[in-house]
Design a protein around this nucleic acid. Structure first.
Lengths: 253, 253
DNA sequence: GCTGGGAGAGGCTTA
DNA sequence: TAAGCCTTTCCCAGC
């Protein structure tokens, strides 16, 4: 396919706000927060109306190179060793980065008008689970009363802050997926932070599962784990159960 | 555009291994690890040869819904309230999930042969920096000798393990981007683990920057931070400098 | 509007 | 298979 045509497609999209689809044989170079190089092969290049820039290979889910909204796009045709190349560059400042796509052949280039004002609605997010749990803290323990949700702390944000019947602060961290070491460290930071504020504090992790090592660390740190069972539904998820889990005492001996 | 044609495109791709590009007006439903719903709008659907399935809106860098390689793809035409719809479903087990894309109109549908055997080569990865630092630990401190790189620990993996001139173990964690709370917790876990093994241990974090809160936590935990300056190059990154940073003592008073 | 900062979600690699 | 870790992210809060 003609490079002039492909160049025209990209330039037109700049003013029309359409999405450009280019398919061809190209090399890709990236310099910015990291650097990378991809030798010649067939790729799909997508340039969206907002400047988002994506290069896909023929497999894998993820774009091999990309740049977020707001990139400045530039298309040109240049001779290299007497051979014409079609070059598309996406560049931006802050952070300074630049992707160069050098086509030796273009199979396809076309713009598409895309009208779309809809937003994705997600059910079963961590925030939703947290909302549900907030409404029914009794699931965890009798006498637990909510104080605040998404409580901003100096070192992070607590999912749910509550008080137990003995007047202790209880920091609750909710995870949608199995919890790992990071989740435990996160909870530990919050608990420590609360303890510094004076009164005694407990930390509770609620997740559908937890790794062996994470559970061990959690117990070492004096935190508690509750297995959270839930069902995803529309328009909202639903908590099915919440069960305290811990190693048997004799596991320690 | 004709739905039969679009259906034919997708079915052909199943055997040819080509990449399908479909553009049209559709609704999207997802059920699996979470659930989501997207009302009608114009979208780009990409189905790659390996079964990767991507739905893009007209803006943002990321696909709004997707499924990794290995998904089973199914295309059909169905009547709904007397109106024809073109439906594409991507499903897989383990984890069980399913995306349904329901088109009310198709603007474009075509397959593309994509030949590409190249792999992306990245420079300036964390591992590369770690390699470089390993070769010249003197940059951090005189008398530091390497013991092991990528040392597997019970609770994670230490980037670099060394011994200082006083015989203390030194755990070194390298980050290529600014360090945050997580990085500090990670280092703290390693240091504790080493200390449990008997001898005294220090923990050093090397990163191009660190957040205020992370630095504070790091100091509370008795860890050390070195500002790592490096340059990304080809074929390898290069360490420019390494400088010990800490709050002035009077900051504490 | 921009920046800093924390947290999320998926793929990667190795045991 | 499971776990840990990484990341060319995202989103919110504050200035």
């Amino acid at each position: 396919m003609n490079f002039e045509l492909a160049k025209g497609v990209i330039e037109k999209a700049k003013t029309s706000g359409e999405m450009s689809i280019i398919i061809g044989t190209c090399m890709v170079k990236y310099e910015g927060r990291a650097a990378s190089k991809l030798s010649s092969g067939d790729r799909l290049l997508i340039i969206k109306g907002d400047g988002s820039f994506l290069i896909h290979q023929s497999d894998k889910m993820q774009a091999i190179n990309y740049q977020g909204p707001g990139a400045a796009i530039n298309a040109s045709i240049e001779k290299e060793d007497g051979v014409e190349k079609f070059i598309v560059i996406a560049a931006r400042e802050k952070p300074k980065e630049r992707i160069e796509v050098k086509f030796s052949a273009v199979q396809f280039a076309q713009n598409f008008k895309m009208k779309d004002d809809e937003k994705l609605r997600v059910f079963g997010s961590e925030r939703q689970l947290s909302d549900l749990l907030m409404q029914d803290l009794q699931l965890i323990e009798d006498g637990l009363v909510p104080i605040q949700q998404e409580s901003p702390l100096h070192k992070g944000t607590i999912d749910i802050l509550a008080k137990d019947k003995n007047g202790n602060f209880v920091v609750i961290e909710v995870k949608r997926r199995d919890a790992h070491l990071n989740a435990v460290s996160q909870l530990e930071r919050y608990k420590n932070e609360m303890q510094k504020k004076g009164s005694n504090a407990r930390g509770i992790l609620c997740a559908p599962g937890i790794s062996e090592t994470a559970l061990k660390l959690l117990e070492e740190k004096g935190l508690e784990y509750y297995k959270l069972t839930y069902q995803i539904g529309n328009p909202s998820a639903k908590i099915i159960g919440l069960q305290k889990k811990q190693k048997e005492l004799n596991d320690f001996f």
